[in-house]
Design a protein around this nucleic acid. Structure first.
Lengths: 197, 197
DNA sequence: GTCTATAGATGGATAGAC
DNA sequence: GTCTATCCATCTATAGAC
């Protein structure tokens, strides 16, 4: 073959990486295949040797992005539930995350578009997202609390990103952070078994 | 004139109504001007006699939609803060709202796309949204709590809509509802001044 | 496997008749 | 004020050369 072994897999990963950044920043339906491939240094013809359609790319993207998010959680250095959760909370509800969707969580960036995609996309999304909920539930005490936690984070990012000024962005993520830290102390298993002082 | 007085305003309102439903259901960038005008029974040429551009329509839509949301709040029949809030919570976190974005709140449907729009759109959005936060703050005790409340609702709708099954949609909105009802009892002014029993 | 080239449809927006 | 017709760009996807 004219290309070294593993070249296709590398190009695929490169396409996923570049496409993920462009699509999270500019939206899935608003970003064309030409734009995506130009970012990765190939042409649209090459795109279709890696993905059967633009929708197939979206599925690969969701899979990749949610896996990356779980790996970030795995790198959390804290042990106790409270410290672990507060660390993630500060990481997610940060001005850097608000200002850089291209390197951030896929859910606030593409959640609404995933909701409009076909069933196969939503099936994959729900499956991968649930893996994260299971991990989070171990820290928070229940899957119900884990879902509510994620909803709060996602909503805060969606709202904050649509604010025109830094001051307003900070007000939104600050409000969510304060609310969550207080609520989790009360509602989480940890809060019940180890109340502060 | 060949058209009765007020015809233009009526057509504009009709365009706003139809476009709002189509765009909330299918996305702003994914819905073309031809589709929007066909839904209202006119052609694309007519569109540009009402709106200078598709972006101008988005602004008119945001203004209109957030006004409608505030009017819904005004129709809430309850007086006490707890009853008033629980009523809105049940209305927002319902399966009907999840399944019918075309007639629902504009924020979970278009929040991510508003975040990508130009500054004039975000300025208007923040201004109109803040009016709602002020109203909500009177019930919850602070603007900070109002922001957190809205973030939870919006995140829940975004997440629930992307779930493939009714069971999973219910799990998401149910978790958010339970979490909010508990948290607000503790954190709101009402909860502090009128603790249950 | 990637390229060029292109098909066929649709995107936003405008001109001119009525 | 709305219509038809159209411009030009971009869209998703494919065909065929290398």
């Amino acid at each position: 073959m004219r290309y070294p072994a593993g070249h296709k897999q590398e190009k695929r990963q490169e396409l996923l990486r570049v496409s993920g950044a462009l699509i999270k920043a500019n939206g899935f339906s608003a970003t064309g295949v030409d734009t995506l491939t130009q970012g990765a240094g190939v042409t649209s013809g090459s795109f279709y040797s890696h993905f059967g359609s633009k929708t197939e790319l979206l599925k690969a993207l969701i899979d990749n992005e949610l896996q990356i998010s779980r790996e970030m959680w795995a790198g959390n250095p804290h042990d106790t539930a409270e410290e672990w959760v507060n660390f993630e909370l500060d990481r997610y509800l940060s001005l850097g995350h608000v200002n850089h969707p291209e390197s951030g969580c896929v859910i606030p960036a593409l959640g609404a578009e995933i909701a409009r995609a076909d069933t196969s996309v939503k099936d994959l999304y729900a499956q991968e997202l649930h893996k994260g909920v299971v991990i989070l539930a171990k820290r928070l005490g229940s899957e119900s609390l884990a879902w509510a936690f994620i909803c709060q984070l996602v909503g805060a990012l969606v709202l904050a990103r649509a604010m025109p000024t830094t001051k307003e962005k900070k007000a939104v993520i600050g409000a969510s952070k304060q609310f969550l830290k207080h609520a989790l102390q009360v509602q989480s298993t940890h809060g019940h078994t180890h109340p502060p002082s």
